[in-house]
Design a protein around this nucleic acid. Structure first.
Length: 640
RNA sequence: GCCGCUUUAGCUCAGCUAGGUAGAGCAAUGCCAUGGUAAGGCAGAGGUCGUAGGUUCAAAUCCUACAUGCGGCACCA
């Protein structure tokens, strides 16, 4: 007999070799039906894997997040089995469960086409109906290597495992796969799934190695959940910033203008200008000074900074004229270093905070370009803070809090905060262990002191120092960097920056790089998706649309209102087209204009307006003064 | 950059499987109509079917190359 401890602290005895499924069944038949897998002393166990010794267990039911992963991981195996039936020479890479489903990396021996997904999915359905049990078996490493000798990918994976490790295999029917486990008991339990897309993926994430084909899919415990998920995917497409940007006339991308070179249309530029003004004020309040430097620099400038050796491949080609070599700037740090050097600095002058609205150019790989999310010419509010060592923590924290303020005002949702550190690859990072250790320690301390939760990412740092990145998730599920605070001991050295300390000696300042809210391009893409195209009043390109009921009788009153609103700095527009009232109302609604005002006999001569707020059905009549007051307040408070 | 897919009117898309010389809705234009919260009617106009080449009596449709865009991968200082 073995002793089983339950999460509630109770013990119960079972015969040796009992399974999670049997334990669940001993509690209730309902629990048995809901159970999917379990943790046994912290290790994920299949339902039917025998438990051989005393253990603490936790049963995973269909409601648990882990259950979704177990199901989807099992669906990946089902996919592999189906592929193997259709393509007998297929070899397999890895096939994990992911956030919303699963994938498997496959070398089918021939090219799988997108249309083939249909027949693969059909084969999966058939295997599911065969109701094959999924069983586990353990082998020593050398036997596992022998077993998989025809699959070079599996051989490589097994070879990388430590010596002496027990290797587990999972078999369903004629198909056996290398796998750590956590599987659903039988193929019959994988019924509600869909293959979603076919993509390329480098073996082991290395672009120098072979490229496999990756099939993505998603699996659920019942048909409703599957249908719901497919609906969610469709809804996400509806708020894709590329679609909304087209509909709302925000930006344009054109082959002739150039790949990844966005053109801002009037509506988009209006929003951008509001954002620029907003950021300018925010930075003024936080003690930043604004400067302006050129979009072009000498190659020499980037050689001094070190960017030339680290970043050249991502720069547009150089321009040469009269013996000088110029480049389009991919970042503004070097220019800001020169601005710092324009004067002799005292310790009393620090911190100095320079901000600039910078347009920069980066030659991003063609395959990485994506709407406004990833472009080749971008404009952002960039800032560099020149601080004494004793000021680092406060300035990093202030910069971080400024970022949080902007993110809050824009109603953005942070996915997670990342602390990007270096790894051992010496060529990718500036090579000075002492500087790095100091900088990384400082940031870690700061995050701990402020109780900021973060994810550590080794190897993600800038070449000159570690950074704190704020990540957001796009409608299409990409995680991208929104904001960044970077610590830099290197550029001050490269540019020989100094200040005179209280001791009369020269000292080295530290530079903090700060990206507030990404580039205007990326920010616009995020905002469009976040707001589903319905900008809050303070950002909306058109805030008020005035619609006279009758052009003959009401135009003049409407025109007076429009002029008045504009005098109060409200972005108001008059719809004087010869169209039906209903048509104009629909137009104002599809353009997601915050305030739609229909002007007729009820308003004329009475100093009243009747408005309808976007997203609401009801109409409200107020005096003109009340209306202006209300909208102005909303704009200043940014709606919160 | 790599793999797969894609490209037809300003926009969204049909036509391509089985080759016979291009169609819809919306927008735009003109005329008529038009008074209270989501599409009034009629008419005309609009396309070297991504580009170049090939097969064919004949190519939007089949083949090849290149390019754009999309889904991923890699990259993202």
């Amino acid at each position: 007999m073995i002793k089983i401890k339950f999460p509630d602290g109770n013990f119960k005895e079972f015969s040796q070799g009992t399974t999670i499924e049997q334990i669940a069944g001993s509690i209730s038949s309902g629990l048995r039906k809901q159970s999917v897998a379990g943790y046994v002393n912290g290790e994920l166990f299949d339902l039917n894997r025998p438990i051989l010794e005393d253990a603490e267990i936790k049963i995973i039911t269909k409601k648990d997040q882990e259950a979704f992963e177990v199901l989807n991981h099992s669906a990946a195996h089902l996919l592999a089995q189906a592929v193997k039936r259709i393509y007998p020479n297929a070899k397999f890479g890895v096939g994990p469960a992911i956030r919303e489903g699963f994938y498997y990396d496959i070398d089918a021996g021939e090219i799988i086409k997108e249309e083939d997904l249909i027949k693969i999915e059909k084969m999966m359905k058939r295997i599911s109906q065969e109701q094959t049990p999924i069983t586990r078996r353990e082998l020593p490493k050398d036997e596992a290597l022998a077993f998989f000798k025809d699959d070079k990918y599996k051989v490589e994976l097994i070879s990388d495992l430590p010596e002496g490790e027990i290797i587990s295999l999972y078999t369903q029917g004629e198909f056996t796969d290398l796998c750590r486990g956590g599987h659903i008991g039988s193929t019959k339990n994988i019924r509600f799934f869909k293959l979603l897309s076919l993509a390329g993926a480098y073996w082991r994430g290395d672009s120098n190695r072979e490229q496999l084909q990756r099939i993505y899919g998603t699996a659920w415990f019942n048909e409703d959940d599957l249908k719901r998920h497919i609906k969610v995917l469709a809804e996400r497409k509806e708020r894709d910033h590329r679609k909304l940007g087209k509909e709302l006339k925000i930006f344009e991308l054109s082959y002739d203008a150039g790949q990844g070179l966005a053109l801002w249309l009037p509506n988009g530029y209006t929003v951008r200008k509001v954002l620029e003004d907003y950021v300018y004020k925010l930075e003024r309040k936080a003690g930043y000074q604004h400067i302006s430097t050129p979009a072009l620099g000498t190659k020499r400038l980037y050689e001094i900074s070190g960017h030339w050796s680290h970043y050249r491949d991502n720069m547009f080609p150089v321009m040469e004229r009269d013996g000088e070599t110029f480049v389009l700037r991919p970042m503004s740090c070097p220019h800001h270093m020169i601005v710092y050097k324009s004067d002799l600095r005292s310790y009393r002058d620090l911190p100095i905070r320079y901000a600039e609205i910078v347009t920069q150019h980066r030659y991003e790989a063609s395959g990485s370009l994506s709407g406004l999310e990833r472009v080749r010419a971008m404009t952002l509010t960039d800032a560099h803070l020149f601080v004494r060592e004793d000021q680092i923590k406060k300035e990093v924290l202030d910069a971080y809090n400024l970022i949080l303020k902007a993110i809050k005002d824009l109603e953005l949702e942070i996915e997670y905060v990342e602390l990007a550190l270096r790894d051992k690859s010496k060529d990718k990072f500036h090579d000075d262990d002492k500087l790095w250790d100091t900088a990384e320690k400082l940031l870690k301390e700061l995050l701990a002191e402020e109780n900021i939760e973060y994810t550590e990412m080794k190897g993600e740092a800038a070449f000159y120092g570690p950074k704190i990145d704020i990540q957001v998730r796009t409608a299409m599920g990409h995680v991208i960097t929104m904001s960044t605070v970077q610590l830099d001991f290197l550029l001050p050295e490269r540019f020989d920056l100094t200040y005179i300390g209280s001791d009369g000696e020269k000292h080295r300042p530290v530079v903090i790089h700060r990206g507030l809210i990404s580039t205007w391009e990326r920010l616009m893409s995020i905002l469009l998706e976040q707001y589903k195209g319905a900008f809050p009043t303070w950002l909306a390109p058109i805030q008020i649309k005035l619609i006279p009921v009758s052009l003959d009788a009401h135009t003049s009153y409407a025109k007076n209102l429009n002029d008045l609103f504009i005098d109060y700095d409200l972005r108001s527009e008059l719809d004087l087209r010869e169209e039906k009232l209903g048509y104009k109302i629909r137009d104002a609604q599809t353009n997601k204009i915050p305030y739609q005002l229909v002007v007729g006999d009820n308003e004329v001569g009475s100093n009243l307006v009747t408005y309808r707020k976007f997203g609401k059905k009801e109409q409200t009549t107020v005096t003109v003064d009340e209306f202006i007051n209300m909208v102005q307040k909303e704009i200043i408070s940014k709606g919160h």
